[in-house]
Design a protein around this nucleic acid. Structure first.
Length: 703
RNA sequence: GGGCAAUUAGCUCAGUGGUUAGAGCGCUUCGUUGACAUCGAAGAGGCCACUGGUCCGAUUCCAGUAUUGCCCACCA
């Protein structure tokens, strides 16, 4: 390693070189593990499988924070003598990726249908090669000590085998079933979506009051609706059974306007008597609540909207083929003609939209695969309630449990092209992307593979050796999408929890507390920060702000502070090296009882001991920000401002002292070790320049 | 509608039942020959959101209010 200890510290001279050094030396792989004499951790493994980023784009600050957290844990455990594995990879991300590639093609005026399925999938694989690579490189720039030889993708052939095995297992158990049910349908993506894949958007629309004539000619019942066009599929009008106003009418028959179908007035507790007129039109085919009312009251189902978002023949001749919005106009026009539109009020409400393309979701009946959730949810609940899996901070257990306790069966089939095929003959559907992500902690370790290992089918010894993993660190918004499902999958298929501790890291917001988002232009690219300040400074800035799991209102000045801290460490090292240049010192632990020690010596050794304890404790408790603050204070205040200054004075005394030099070197070297998990590049570079016996690399030095 | 957080220096945030409440950045003044001006020394700047309660004592514990943010639900 070269030597130029110039001022100031320049990360560009160091980072790339150091990363290459680590990679070439093979230190990231568990195979590099060497037992440390007398270390009780020698036989223990420590594994993290990285949450695989979607191949839809590049990493954002949240990924950078999460990767830094995991790297800190892995590096510390590695130094503590554990056999560590941090497994990298990426996720195929079904709909998200399909949509991104479609958009990309659209720029050239091509649709996926122009290409056909096979060619389109080729395009997606090309995309994956390109972006998967970019993402993994970004992890490298950040200093992530991942074992690249074990990189996985959720569509690797070994992984596909695992998905198939899991699906068939559920099917044999009778938990995987096919049924025609009302589902969330995105007409643009032409696929079903789970509830978790929806977003809600407030829109300004109208509340229409429509008169439904009683068959006996005795008057009307007025219903209020935001969706008049769905009246074409009505099979009843419902009122609350306790609603005195309508009690006499329950059981009577109405004539559905335009359609002229006879429909009953039914009583159902789901109706809120205080909203609108207290009477609700019921369209079992196109509304979730109406579907339930329909089931309870054994109502007919009239499907009037097709999967392409247009009206089907059953909607009637005047509306057939129309888009939903056009049909609405038509129905309103017709009702006006008939004198049955009582009034129209402006009304604000939420509509569900597709989380990937923003199209309004249409609930409609469709034949889909469902996974029965009752048993699986119970298992997942039990793992957390029993304390076998712990969330940090603990409050997130509430989010997790609340969702599982109310969960409905999971619609796992998707009518898109990119994804794992539903195994079973003749199926064109693919699986929800989360169905495969759910297997990540064990499918990546070769759980499904046979004894014979190939490049594509990883050695199943990994599964034996590294599963269960220890830590899952992720973002709060995928607790239900992902964490719940990994936990029940792990227990169901391996009989073991997939990890023991779930870290829910801080969400990074803009300075004004808004969500960071690419589309709003409020996102910050971690690579820009690395370019500007260096990776260690970027990691410092991220972790400095990660206090107690609270949201981070992003403030770049902390990254600048990180850069200054790097410079401080660098220059303190220059000073120490200069002091010891004329002696043959080696790093040795000074005896605190040694009578030659000055008061200042004793104090700095005591403070070093405290800093070490505090950093260990805080890191093990996942309080990374606190750990870094403590280290910073120790190094800058106690070591540089106080001890080094004191040391200068002592050295200028005529008698001189040599003991001070030993301690200088010892405290510096110890600090460098403690700082390494947080700021790996600069510390490794410095280590390579210190007089160490049998020097290898700081990354594998003992903590 | 239900839930969870937050509210402390100009900004981003720590912290504590008990004399003078801290850090980073910013600001002011001074200091360049020896690790570092990406620095050092000194300093200004806070009714710790509001109201009430517990207590000898509350920024800290409790209750309520206000504001902000996030999550869940999705009322036609």
């Amino acid at each position: 390693m070269s030597n130029s200890f110039d001022k100031p510290y320049n990360p560009k001279d160091v980072e790339e070189k150091i990363y290459e050094f680590w990679e070439k030396s093979g230190y990231f792989a568990p195979e590099a593990h060497q037992p440390q004499a007398g270390n009780p951790n020698n036989d223990k493994t420590f594994t993290i499988t990285v949450p695989p980023p979607n191949i839809t784009g590049s990493l954002h600050l949240g990924h950078a924070l999460n990767a830094t957290i995991q790297d800190i844990l892995i590096r510390k455990k590695r130094m503590e003598g554990y056999k560590t594995l941090w497994l990298p990879g990426t996720d195929h991300a079904g709909i998200a990726t399909q949509n991104v590639v479609e958009k990309d093609l659209k720029k050239q005026g091509i649709s996926r249908h122009d290409l056909g399925k096979e060619k389109f999938l080729e395009k997606i694989w090309e995309w994956k090669e390109k972006y998967g690579h970019i993402i993994l490189n970004q992890f490298k720039k950040l200093g992530a000590s991942m074992d690249w030889s074990r990189t996985r993708f959720t569509m690797d052939s070994g992984y596909q085998e695992a998905v198939k095995k899991v699906f068939l297992h559920y099917h044999e158990k009778g938990w995987m079933y096919k049924a025609e049910r009302i589902v969330n349908w995105c007409s643009r993506c032409a696929t079903s979506l789970s509830d978790l894949e929806l977003e809600y958007k407030e829109i300004e629309s109208s509340l229409y009051y429509i008169k439904y004539p009683l068959k006996d000619g005795s008057g009307f019942v007025i219903v209020a609706t935001t969706r008049p066009e769905t009246m074409l599929g009505d099979s009843a009008v419902a009122v609350n059974p306790k609603d005195e106003k309508y009690k006499p009418l329950v059981g009577k028959t109405l004539i559905l306007p335009i359609v002229n179908r006879e429909i009953p007035i039914v009583a159902d507790f789901a109706i809120d008597a205080t909203f609108g007129t207290g009477a609700v039109k019921v369209t079992p085919a196109h509304d979730f609540i109406d579907a339930e009312i329909g089931e309870r009251n054994k109502l007919e189902i009239h499907k009037i909207i097709g999967q392409n978002g247009r009206m089907v023949p059953e909607a009637g001749a005047i509306c057939e083929g129309l888009k939903i919005s056009k049909c609405r106009e038509k129905v309103i026009e017709k009702l006006k003609e008939l004198g049955l539109l009582e009034k129209e009020e402006p009304y604000k409400h939420n509509v569900a939209v597709c989380y990937r393309c923003d199209t309004i979701i249409e609930p409609l009946p469709s034949l889909q695969w469902f996974l029965k959730m009752d048993n699986l949810a119970k298992m997942a609940i039990d793992e957390v309630k029993s304390g076998r899996i712990k969330f940090h901070p603990q409050k997130w257990e509430g989010v997790y449990l609340n969702w599982l306790e109310n969960v409905k069966d999971w619609c796992v089939s998707r009518q898109i092209w990119w994804g794992h095929k539903v195994p079973i003959e003749g199926e064109e559907d693919v699986l929800d992307t989360w169905f495969s992500s759910a297997l990540w902690p064990f499918a990546t370790l070769g759980w499904s593979s046979s004894a014979e290992a190939t490049a594509d089918k990883p050695d199943s010894n990994d599964f034996k050796e590294f599963y269960p993993t220890q830590i899952l660190s992720t973002a709060r918004d995928i607790i239900n999408l992902w964490v719940t499902r990994m936990i029940f999958s792990g227990v169901e298929f391996t009989g073991k929890k997939p990890f023991s501790d779930v870290i829910i890291h801080a969400t990074i917001l803009t300075k004004d507390g808004k969500r960071m988002s690419k589309s709003l232009g409020t996102g910050i690219d971690p690579m820009t920060l690395i370019e500007k300040y260096g990776a260690d400074a970027t990691r410092f800035g991220l972790i400095w702000q990660a206090m107690g799991g609270q949201d981070i209102h992003w403030a770049e000045e902390h990254v600048m502070a990180g850069k200054k801290f790097c410079n401080k460490i660098w220059n303190a090292t220059r000073f120490v090296l200069k002091q010891i240049a004329d002696c043959e010192l080696r790093i040795t632990e000074p005896q605190i009882e040694n009578q030659n020690l000055t008061e200042a010596d004793k104090q700095i050794l005591e403070k070093l001991k405290n800093a070490k304890e505090s950093v260990s404790k805080q890191t093990d408790a996942f309080e990374f920000g606190q750990a870094l603050h403590d280290l910073y204070d120790f190094f800058w205040r106690d070591f540089c401002d106080i001890y080094i200054e004191e040391n200068k004075k002592q050295n200028s005394l005529p008698a001189g002292r040599h003991g001070g030099k030993e301690i200088l070197l010892y405290v510096l070297a110890s600090s460098i070790k403690l700082l390494h998990p947080f700021m790996p590049f600069i510390t490794e570079e410095i280590w390579q320049n210190l007089p160490v016996e049998n020097k290898k690399a700081l990354i594998i030095e003992s903590w």
